[in-house]
Deep mutational scan, measured.
Amino acid sequence: ATNIVGKVKWYNSTKNAGFIEQDNGGKDVFVHKSAVDAAGLHSLEEGQDVIFDLEEKQGKAYAVNLRIK
């Protein structure tokens, strides 16, 4: 899926990971530091509006192509 709108639920820069809550009510999506880095960002803030694509690896959904809304 592409161009999904959501809000950062939480992001821990020590653990280099967090979750994004989908505005469409879907399951929360894992976001890794690699996606944050690829977006040219240093970190994510709780409640921040984002747009992202979903990629599945080994049955788990990940946020990729992250951008700030």
Rank of each mutant, 00 (worst) to 15 (best):
A1T: 13
A1Y: 12
A1P: 10
T2C: 12
T2K: 14
T2E: 09
N3G: 10
N3T: 06
I4V: 11
I4M: 11
I4F: 08
I4K: 09
V5S: 14
V5D: 07
V5Y: 13
G6R: 01
G6D: 00
G6N: 01
G6T: 01
G6Q: 01
V8H: 00
V8C: 03
K9A: 04
K9W: 03
K9D: 00
W10L: 04
W10G: 03
W10H: 04
Y11H: 02
Y11V: 09
Y11M: 06
Y11P: 00
Y11N: 02
N12K: 08
N12I: 07
N12Y: 07
N12S: 14
S13K: 14
S13Y: 11
S13W: 11
S13R: 13
S13T: 12
S13A: 13
S13I: 12
T14P: 05
T14R: 14
T14Q: 13
K15E: 08
K15P: 02
K15S: 09
K15Q: 10
K15W: 14
N16R: 15
N16E: 11
A17C: 15
A17R: 12
A17D: 03
A17W: 15
G18D: 01
G18T: 02
G18L: 05
G18E: 00
F19E: 07
I20C: 02
I20Q: 01
I20T: 00
I20Y: 00
E21N: 08
E21Q: 14
E21T: 15
E21G: 11
E21P: 01
E21A: 15
Q22G: 06
Q22W: 12
Q22L: 13
Q22M: 13
D23L: 15
N24M: 09
N24L: 09
N24S: 10
G25C: 08
G25A: 06
G25R: 07
G26H: 09
G26S: 08
G26I: 06
K27F: 09
K27A: 12
K27L: 10
D28S: 08
D28N: 09
D28H: 09
D28Q: 09
D28C: 11
D28P: 10
V29T: 04
V29I: 11
V29D: 00
F30L: 06
F30Y: 11
F30M: 07
V31F: 12
H32W: 06
H32M: 10
H32Y: 08
K33S: 09
K33L: 05
K33R: 11
K33P: 06
K33Y: 08
S34Q: 09
S34P: 04
S34F: 10
S34D: 09
S34T: 12
A35Y: 05
V36M: 09
V36E: 00
V36W: 04
D37E: 14
D37H: 14
D37S: 12
D37I: 15
A38L: 09
A39V: 06
A39E: 02
A39Q: 03
G40C: 09
G40I: 03
G40D: 05
G40R: 07
H42D: 12
H42S: 13
H42I: 12
H42V: 12
H42R: 12
S43Y: 13
S43W: 12
S43G: 13
S43T: 14
S43E: 10
S43V: 11
L44W: 02
L44D: 00
E45G: 08
E45S: 12
E45D: 10
E45N: 11
E46W: 12
E46F: 11
G47L: 04
G47E: 03
Q48P: 01
Q48M: 13
Q48Y: 06
D49G: 14
D49E: 15
D49H: 15
V50M: 06
V50F: 03
V50L: 11
V50D: 00
V50C: 04
I51T: 08
F52G: 01
F52A: 01
F52V: 02
D53S: 04
D53K: 02
L54E: 02
E55D: 07
E55N: 08
E55S: 09
E55C: 13
E56K: 11
E56R: 13
E56L: 13
E56W: 15
K57A: 10
Q58F: 13
Q58C: 14
Q58D: 15
Q58A: 13
Q58N: 15
G59K: 05
G59S: 06
G59H: 05
G59V: 01
K60I: 09
K60E: 07
A61W: 14
A61L: 14
Y62G: 03
Y62P: 02
Y62S: 08
A63E: 01
A63D: 02
A63I: 04
V64E: 03
V64P: 01
V64S: 06
N65V: 02
N65G: 03
N65L: 02
L66E: 00
L66Y: 00
R67F: 04
R67Y: 04
R67T: 05
R67A: 03
R67G: 02
K69T: 12
K69Y: 12
K69Q: 12
K69L: 14
K69F: 13
